[in-house]
Simulated assay, not measured.
Amino acid sequence: MTDAVFHESAAGPRTRSVPLAHLSLELGHLYMEDFEAGPERLRAHFAEVRPWVEAARAAATARAGDKRARVSTCFLVDDYFTRFSTPAEVVPTLLAEAERAGLDIDYLARESGCAVTGGTPVAEAVTARIVESPPPGSHGLRPPVTQTGWLANGERGSVARAPRAMRRAVPWRPPHETAARHHSVFLDVELWSDDADGQRLWSCPLLAAVWQLARLGLLRDEGEAVFSPEPHTATGFPDRWDDLPTLLRLNERADPFAAYRTCSVLPTRFLPVEHAVRVILDQVEVDPGALAQVADRSGTERMAVPAPVADRISYVYCSGP
């Protein structure tokens, strides 16, 4: 005889819903050297971005049945790998150059918030939800990602071994992509590194994967939404990056930050990083409550949303300034 266990339906955390736009459009993600190059570099970036922004808006309108598409724009500032200048100096110049190109930045985010935001270790939480896809024929000989910090999209290659006493020679075996079509494009992604003091540094692909999940409205912490935008009510911007909210709403009339789909207009140097992002997202077990909410809302709006999370993401790559 087994003992029955009863739970109140309200005992578990309730998955809080978030407003959703049709498209989250990223206008850029630049590094310290881009800002150090001065306003001219930003000016060249936004001038190249603008035509693609108009194309992305047109595509979103077509998917919405030629009705008004809810499109929000965002910009990610890298304050994680290098702290440079101050928000008081950087942000006004950034906004001025975007406006000069005829573009509005609705939301401004800090990349360090993709590691930890509001006391929530976001990158660590996403890593904990990675469920590795075992390659066909594997026997669990590969250490798990939680130990190595490396995540692959297939079977790693083997090193050839010469014959030794009591052992046969082992031929070299190439790596193999699990979902290869005709030929493999194998990728092994480093998710973090630890320094001599044991301090963890999250990799750019992992933080970018967190950023995409946030823009898709799929991040939760105990049912609560992560990356809630804070309105910009001050007359200026702070002198310290840590005093700037993780996600700042600059336009009070902006459509919601999170969306059914995302599109990022990026320089071509980000292509390897975003390939790695797809490898990560293909193996992350996303919060089921958040997924169900998006499915219900998109169904009500008759908006087709791909089931695989990675397929909700699109890119435009330009040469960059």
Rank of each mutant, 00 (worst) to 15 (best):
F227N: 14
S203M: 04
G102C: 00
L23H: 01
A44E: 11
V159A: 09
G320C: 14
A165F: 12
D188M: 09
R68H: 11
D255H: 13
L27M: 14
L141P: 01
L271H: 07
H176Y: 09
E230G: 07
P267N: 02
D287E: 12
R297Y: 02
E111Y: 03
W241L: 01
P288R: 06
T61E: 11
D195Y: 04
P92M: 01
H275L: 04
P136T: 05
D255C: 03
L244W: 03
G154L: 05
F227L: 02
F75L: 13
H29V: 13
S17K: 05
G289T: 06
R63L: 06
A11R: 11
G102W: 05
L216H: 03
A4V: 12
T235F: 00
A307H: 10
E48K: 07
T233H: 09
V316E: 15
V18E: 13
P144C: 05
E190D: 12
E97F: 07
C318N: 09
E89S: 11
V265P: 03
P39N: 12
R57G: 12
C114M: 13
L271D: 06
G12T: 08
A276V: 07
L266R: 01
A295L: 08
V122C: 00
S133L: 13
A179P: 00
M32H: 13
L151W: 05
R164T: 14
R167W: 06
A128W: 00
S158F: 01
G28N: 08
R297N: 06
A292F: 03
A60S: 14
R156N: 11
F257C: 09
A11T: 00
A4Y: 11
V189W: 10
E54Q: 13
A180T: 00
G299E: 04
L201A: 14
D195S: 02
R240M: 05
P174M: 08
Y107H: 09
E99K: 14
G102I: 10
A254S: 12
R110L: 15
A165D: 12
K67D: 15
A44R: 14
T178Y: 07
A101F: 01
T262H: 05
Q283H: 04
R63I: 00
